[in-house]
Design a protein around this nucleic acid. Structure first.
Lengths: 167, 167
DNA sequence: GACATTATGTTACACTATAACAACTTTTTC
DNA sequence: GAAAAAGTTGTTATAGTGTAACATAATGTC
């Protein structure tokens, strides 16, 4: 089975590339919107992209401090708000945590696969699923304008390990 | 368009009936499971069912105190845990709030329509949507075992009011 | 340079949730 | 029916998540 770029999060990959791409895209988008990717915002974005596990705001705060940034909660939350507004990150509601967005710029509603075992998250980004949901809502006279789709389960990698180490 | 029992939450209806049914079902289920629907638990369930707007734990606590119950946070959270475990209520992740379950007992994953205007929530409970999502995940080698589906938008009633009072 | 705008610093606090242990009730067992 | 076990509630303290409000600093505009 071939995996799209989206769900490669679960497969071993050159993660530095993820980070580089994310920053590059962020710069592009900020330029487009005439917004500023300040050092703090970039630092937060990089920290979020340092893995595919969603990070909590206070964990980010901790890491920012280690990097010598000044740190109080509002600092982090402001950066997060900025990144969220520009579609550069997503908030995972069921985890109170944040993860990098794979398709910044393109307007899309996040659909997440969350592995209960390794804690990693991949984006599904299946537009037809999105419209299927809209339809479902519309059938009840409901006009949808945003969706929270968070699917918990076991990723391919962890399934393999399970079969190797049963019990 | 005809609405199923599920999404009637948005339409005017005899709400006392909702509550009565909910309690009756709760009693049935607790009997089945040999669990006890204690006065506190029942009080919390009734409070949750007192409307179709999800309620936060601390709001419940407040209301419990007004009813003369003893109240500290753990009291409420324990009742909520019990009700959640028995499938009598759902937690709305994106609101940190709780709402009554329309199909207690039947194992189902919650799908919620949340009106941004009136704050009311209806359950979709579209099993084919659930399996559609499972499929979507499976296509990426991911085994889903639970889903968080929360759709924000405008309910039929609020749409009507909008068209009557534009601006 | 003066001004408006945007971003950050700082303090304090609100909201959501749980840990840990004590006391009490109900059920079970003998 | 008394003792033990299991389940429920009381109580105190604290952890985790998020924001309000106001001061200061940096940046952009004219």
């Amino acid at each position: 089975m071939s995996h799209s770029r989206d769900t490669d999060a679960f497969s071993p990959h050159d993660h530095r590339r993820c980070i580089r791409t994310a920053i590059a895209e962020a710069e592009r988008i900020c330029l487009e919107h005439n917004s500023r990717l300040t050092p703090q915002r970039q630092a937060v974005l990089e920290l979020i992209w340092s893995s595919h596990k969603p990070v909590g705001a206070y964990a980010l705060l901790e890491q920012l401090r280690e990097l010598g940034h000044n740190g109080q909660p509002p600092t982090v939350y402001r950066a997060l708000d900025f990144l969220l507004q520009h579609g550069l990150i997503h908030r995972i509601e069921s985890l109170n945590a944040y993860t990098g967005c794979r398709h910044p710029g393109e307007h899309h509603t996040g659909q997440f696969l969350i592995c209960s075992q390794c804690q990693q998250v991949a984006e599904l980004d299946d537009p037809s699923l999105g419209s299927r949901i809209e339809d479902s809502a519309a059938r009840h006279g409901f006009v949808a304008d945003s969706q929270v789709i968070e699917i918990r389960g076991t990723c391919p990698q962890c399934q393999q390990q399970d079969s190797h180490e049963p019990r």
